[in-house]
Nucleic acid binder design. Sequence first.
DNA 1: GCTTATAATAATAATGATTATTATTTTAAC
DNA 2: GTTAAAATAATAATCATTATTATTATAAGC
Lengths: 126, 126
Amino acid sequence: MATTKYSRQREAIKEYLSHSKEHPTADTIYMDIRETYPNISLGTVYRNLNLLVDKGEVMKIIGMDGSDRYDGNTQHHYHFLCNKCQRVLDIDMDSIDRINDIANKNFPGKVEGHVTYFYGKCNECE
Amino acid sequence: MATTKYSRQREAIKEYLSHSKEHPTADTIYMDIRETYPNISLGTVYRNLNLLVDKGEVMKIIGMDGSDRYDGNTQHHYHFLCNKCQRVLDIDMDSIDRINDIANKNFPGKVEGHVTYFYGKCNECE
DNA sequence: GCTTATAATAATAATGATTATTATTTTAAC
DNA sequence: GTTAAAATAATAATCATTATTATTATAAGC
């Protein structure tokens, strides 16, 4: 795959993710985009999601239940996983990068970053 | 399943995990325990791992590649995921629970805890 | 120690998410 | 417009995990 050609399906996926706040799974994206493109294939959704993740235009989040979810916002931000409704929500707080330094002091290899998920109950489930 | 009966297979899994520092996958555990119990079944390994996780005797770690790994040490400690060899290693550092408070101040629901993975290159891969 | 009820097992089938294959269709350069 | 390369839809294949079921092991009561 030398050059990347335009595809309306990929555009639809980008468009969809840029407006979604739901951190959807590949299957959810597939189901929803089928409303506009009735014969888009699930394989196409997966392939384009991986492509967009590789290009850094989309972020993949692995939930604590192991499910892959996608986020159109690639700016660094924290995620909250609700133990009850299993939704993934955003937390708007400053990055705590200094914990990388703490980790580096206590580890022989090279710590380049960290991934933190918060969990608990969202306000709707409380 | 009212009461839990003894099984030598489950004991072997506990024993194995209590000595392992490798954070093995279910399949690795299966392969290794087959040396001593040649006809243990992979289903038995999975069932007992889930049982031990439910009882809190074993910890399940979901790696960034989505693979499930198991840890016999249930004391809180941080994990490091090597981007190159995909191994999961321990980092010996104090818990940074105060970030839960920071998150709680910035989130409408109830933050009960967090999971943090560090990543980068381990000293063998550097 | 023997009987009996129940849990655990081994073997295997089933499931679910993701990736690979392939013939056909789109895209975009010439 | 032609043409080569990339993307697609449909489908098959893969991989990890869970479910099913007939058989075996455990442990309690006699």
